[in-house]
Design a protein around this nucleic acid. Structure first.
Lengths: 250, 250
DNA sequence: CGCAAAGTTGAGCGTCCTCAAGCAGCGTGG
DNA sequence: CCACGCTGCTTGAGGACGCTCAACTTTGCG
């Protein structure tokens, strides 16, 4: 009954099987229908929240791109996540009641904030809302695991290829074009995220360009042309089988 | 009112400030009080669930230790998480409705399974239960981020030290002794988890033993003596500042 | 007791990091 | 308008850390 009258009629099951672009759109409708949300415009460098800050709100990316940055007590700093439209920010703060990382805008954009307390109350009344939040957390966990896997099993060149592939896929899920993407991160940030130096990132991208897996159409080296996204997967694939080829020859 | 009569009276706030050992104990009471749970005994190598399998249940570790293993389509395999008493298994499966990794027992132990559908219903009625689940997911996200950070910013020796430190801390949180721990993983598994070879793990542990940060009291090299857990942190610390020392001299 | 599996250790090598130099894009100011 | 400096990117040379391969030792189990 509640489902039938709500603007987003999708149950958890339906959400699973429908195109992801729709899923994200309906998520915003669902939020707007059942919660008091506040919209915040941000510019590059703006901090959505900082480590140690009290976790009162969760945030949902409406537009733009964001990074989450972990800070160790010894000063080590690491980009641990990238977030686009539909992604949530702040889950890390739930357990301890305060944020465990910084969330920083990499671009102009908009985030919606929702009071966590209010969200919990609404979730109790709105199963679809609860499913939405759980799915977002679940996706976050899965994505981080895939990042770990990339870090642990791929050589530097393939890691960059996998990164670009992931970014293109994320854009595709949101109905954006993937043949021509603009990186909002410097080589140093990409390297930090991928566990390598900025020089290695640069060399990897030069290599990918030499192999015609990507291209640099304009002057700015942050504009990357990806004629065929699957070519990036194949590049990763090749690196893996190449590494395994030597042992099997023995 | 409901809270007052439930066996676990802890609100989310209270759970945050109380000792973690209690927190875990009360979590099981809360589960048992409000949900139909099934207890499963497992032995080493038993699979709690497998990738691709339908996600009907979530699982909570009651005893023993478990690993989650990611499988890529190209055959790459990677241990992406370790789980002890109180940890949940299966969050990765919520978004897509099917499990995204394998969960494998590394030891004799016990897991409790709960129907995810039933859990959702109970969460709507029991705020404390909802908080419990969210806190567990949040902790999972935070832990994985810390793993990523370790992978990206630490050299091999320090990564092993950090791994042992994390394991000891996890035991301490559960009220277990940390001066004498038994690794339930082979060097190869540890290496896979930490993104290095089994030889490098072996060398790192030998190095730690040479520095008297750990010891091997018995014959079996899986029994590790940790006279002072903070010495492991200090070893990590030293590796970080050592790496930074050279650049600052320039 | 003997075999298989796991762990240790060493030597050589490759990938990636460090350091350095040069280049490209871009805003500022003479 | 272009010189100027600044920041970010690229490329190269050399070196170090960790991987590969191999031999050996230890442990656990039938």
């Amino acid at each position: 009954m509640l489902n039938a009258t709500s603007p987003a009629r999708s149950s958890a099951i339906a959400a699973r099987t429908m195109p992801k672009t729709n899923r994200i759109g309906e998520a915003f409708e669902l939020l707007q229908a059942h919660l008091p949300i506040t919209r915040h415009l941000v510019r590059e460098g703006d901090r959505v929240y900082q480590v140690g800050q009290r976790m009162d709100c969760l945030f949902v990316v409406f537009s733009g791109s964001f990074k989450t940055v972990n800070l160790a007590s010894d000063g080590r700093e690491q980009v641990v996540g990238l977030h686009l439209k539909g992604d949530w920010l702040g889950f890390d703060g739930i357990a301890e009641g305060q944020h465990a990382c910084d969330a920083v805008a990499m671009d102009v954009g908009e985030v919606w904030s929702v009071q966590y307390a209010a969200l919990l109350l609404s979730c109790a009344l709105q199963p679809a809302l609860l499913s939405l939040v759980h799915a977002a957390m679940s996706r976050e966990i899965t994505r981080e695991r895939n990042s770990m896997m990339s870090l642990c099993t791929l050589p530097a060149n393939a890691r960059v290829a996998d990164f670009l592939h992931g970014w293109a896929e994320a854009l595709a899920e949101r109905g954006l074009r993937t043949d021509q993407i603009t990186l909002r991160m410097s080589r140093a940030e990409i390297g930090n995220y991928l566990g390598m130096t900025l020089e290695s990132v640069s060399r990897a991208m030069s290599q990918l360009a030499r192999d015609n897996v990507i291209g640099f159409p304009e002057k700015g080296r942050r504009h990357v042309q990806i004629p065929d996204v699957s070519a990036l997967s194949r590049f990763v694939q090749r690196s893996v089988s190449l590494a395994e080829a030597v042992p099997t020859l023995q």
